[in-house]
Design a protein around this nucleic acid. Structure first.
Length: 502
RNA sequence: CGGGGCGUAGCUCAGCCUGGUAGAGCGCUUGCUUUGGGAGCAAGAGGUCGCAUGUUCAAAUCAUGUCGCCCCGACCA
């Protein structure tokens, strides 16, 4: 008899369904009345706010300023950059009217047709570029480093909560530089910021690399990416940083006078990271009992449940809990106070326990009369499920270390999964076997990442398409090495990461 | 846009094949009991069965149409 899990089905039974159930059980989000759009509920939004706070600080530390640009973009703006149009045209929401009037059947019908349709931003390169063109006159105006926190809309055919929704929240950084070198440096710097965030806050190991031609952002010269492996061994693109060359600068006349008095085009970059990261967080750490949160992003670090045997215990037990809360509030976990919640709701113990387990709170404490008598607390760790009775003062002294230990354990666990499921493959047969499910009707978890030699050739993409595998990136860490493309036999100097992707 | 599935109480679903007065479990409300582990008993609230048309004495049930959702593909952060 299998152990009863809080989430059903389990990961191994049905991963996509498990994912949806975790979101529901942890009360993070729900589907809305608008197709493809979700409602982010307080617990899910608090996680996003923690991500925002960490990233925002990092952006400011690297010299960026926040600003805000319009939700609507004139249609003609999008037309300016040819590749950009191709990339986004298929998924744009278009606003064509500005008024509603009573219709024949008692409902409302759009009226007041707009002279020029507006599109709801799928990304803001064009509208921000038009501002940049006005703001930038001289080399003294550069570099210009702007970030905006915003919502964007991409009309997706198929959506999945957090991973792909028609509307999503993100940040988009946009910068303009005097030289190509400086813009390239910025592109790389921001990718490093994303990787730092993923690994140190999310406890999610990532592979940094460059996208191949087919996977690049529409209109970019190069796209850098961080790729993470989820527990079903599929890849999730988790943040991208684009070197836009002078493509957008030329399309939008972002020009400045250099020190010689000559008018030249600026070099621009853009980089973005979205609420998709909340999905990444779920799929990286969570288990069959629900969400598991890395302490650095958890809305609450410690939840204390008082356990009353009788009403007369109440005051005493609550005082004891408050002592712990106050003592922890003075401890610093990465510069912030330890976030404690005393859950004093009148609920049964078991129900209350599972409530917090499912929501992924890193540490749960239970305090009853026996603990008080012994000056102890009963502690459970969400990451390992370990329970222990521990001296109260010892816990207070160790709490920050335990949180750090959980953070580290989650990272190491995720890294182990990634390493164990990344293999170097040097033959096409082996490659095919690696990515082929034994039961095509109900594909079991198979494959992972493959590191293989390749080349830019239509034949390569044909095979990949058949296997539903994509080139995730050409990793920076991978050394140059002479080999042959496993698809064509042509010479190759570097391996790329291949995988099935979200 | 293709292929599958589903719309019945807040949630999960049964009932439909074979038409005949709307069901269960969970949740919710109230009371009592319980409390170191997803409580027990009792009482109660809650549904024009997605929508429209048709067939019929009679439709949740049959037919046609329509809208919406979910899953699997193609496309994408």
């Amino acid at each position: 008899m299998a152990k009863k899990t809080a989430i059903q089905p389990t990961r191994s039974e049905d991963y996509p369904s498990w994912y949806q159930q975790v979101i529901k059980a942890a009360d993070m989000a729900e589907n809305s009345d608008v197709r493809g759009c979700m409602v982010i509920k307080p617990w899910g939004y608090a996680i996003w706010e923690n991500m925002q706070a960490a990233l925002d600080r990092m952006f400011k530390e690297t010299g960026h300023e926040n600003a805000y640009f319009p939700l609507f973009i004139p249609l003609r703006f999008l037309e300016k950059e040819a590749e950009h149009v191709d990339g986004f045209a298929k998924e744009c929401a278009v606003v064509t009217h500005h008024r509603l009037e009573p219709g024949p059947d008692g409902g409302l019908v759009p009226a007041g047709k707009l002279e020029e349709p507006l599109i709801v931003r799928p990304t803001s390169e064009t509208i921000i570029g038009s501002s940049f063109a006005r703001w930038i006159q001289s080399y003294r105006d550069l570099p210009l480093k702007i970030n905006q926190w915003a919502n964007v809309v991409r009309w997706e055919l198929r959506t999945r909560m957090f991973l792909r929704t028609s509307e999503f929240l993100w940040q988009e950084g946009h910068t303009a530089h005097a030289t190509k070198e400086e813009a390239l440096e910025e592109t790389r710097l921001m990718l490093d910021v994303y990787a730092d965030f993923a690994e140190n806050w999310m406890a999610m190991p990532v592979i940094k690399g460059e996208k191949t031609d087919g996977e690049r952002f529409p209109g970019a010269e190069s796209t850098l990416t961080i790729e993470a492996m989820m527990q079903d061994r599929k890849a999730l693109q988790s943040g991208t940083s684009h070197f836009l060359g002078q493509n957008f600068a030329k399309a939008q006349e972002i020009k400045y006078q250099d020190t010689n008095g000559e008018e030249v085009h600026a070099w621009t970059t853009s980089w973005g990271l979205s609420t998709r990261m909340v999905g990444a967080l779920i799929m990286t750490h969570s288990d069959d009992d629900g969400l598991v949160l890395p302490p650095r992003l958890a809305p609450k670090h410690v939840v204390i449940s008082p356990i009353y045997k009788s009403d007369s215990d109440r005051g005493q037990i609550l005082d004891y809990c408050k002592q712990i809360e106050n003592a922890l509030a003075e401890k610093s976990f990465h510069g912030d106070p330890v976030k404690v919640m005393i859950d004093d709701r009148d609920m049964r113990g078991g129900e209350k326990k599972w409530f917090h387990v499912k929501r992924g709170v890193p540490i749960r404490l239970e305090v009853g009369p026996r603990d008080i008598a012994d000056h102890k607390v009963f502690m459970s760790r969400r990451d390992t499920g370990e329970n222990q009775s521990i001296d109260k003062n010892e816990f207070i002294a160790e709490a920050v270390n335990i949180l750090a230990n959980i953070q580290n354990n989650l990272y190491e666990r995720a890294l182990k999964l990634q390493k164990e499921n990344t293999v170097r493959i040097d033959s096409l047969d082996e490659f095919k076997a690696y990515f082929t499910a034994k039961d095509s009707n109900k594909p079991e978890i198979h494959g992972g990442f493959a590191m293989s030699h390749w080349c830019e050739d239509p034949a390569v993409y044909k095979v990949l398409e058949e296997l539903k595998v994509t080139i995730r990136c050409v990793p920076f860490d991978e050394p140059e090495e002479n080999g042959v493309c496993i698809f064509t036999g042509k010479p190759s100097t570097k391996r790329a990461v291949f995988g099935k992707a979200y």
